[in-house]
Amino acid sequence: MSVIGSLSLILLLWSGVEEVRLDQLQQRLATGKDTTFVVNFWATWCKPCVEELPAFDKLSRRYKDEPVKVILVSLDNPAERQTKVEPFLKRRGYELCDAVVLNEPKPHLWIDRVDQSWSGSIPATLFIRGERRLFGEFQFSPELLESIFSTFQAEGK
């Protein structure tokens, strides 16, 4: 295999959708003190989730030069990470959002760790900046997402 071939293969592998445990995700959210994380829980099989994803893509593009990070957390079966989730995201062109597949088999143990108020239905979204957090369990239109995001950004500043 040529050097360029090997390099592009490495790049391809590197840019894929990672599989994470909740601990890893929470560590990441705890690192960026000034960064606002918008964490959307979704799945390829969830129709309202798929419908609202463009709103999150739009948000990530709009704030790409600011300390704002949209993380798409897929709750698809981790076994379908490469066959379903990656092709889906690639096809839609959501490359500005970070995407991970959550690998936590026991929902009754981890749902409360994301937010006590979460019933477990998706879509669900967590806004987090340092100590501030806001959790909601409903489908966003682009306008509503932008509005709630702006309000969240303005508060505590």
């Binding site: 937010d115 108020s117 909601g136 709630i148």
Partner: peptide
């Protein structure tokens, strides 16, 4: 309406389990 929705979201976020 948006502010109301935000208030509702905040409320749910603070109070825990849905009532």
């Amino acid at each position: 309406l948006l502010m109301m929705m935000f208030a509702v979201v905040s409320l749910v976020a603070q109070q825990g389990a849905p009532s």
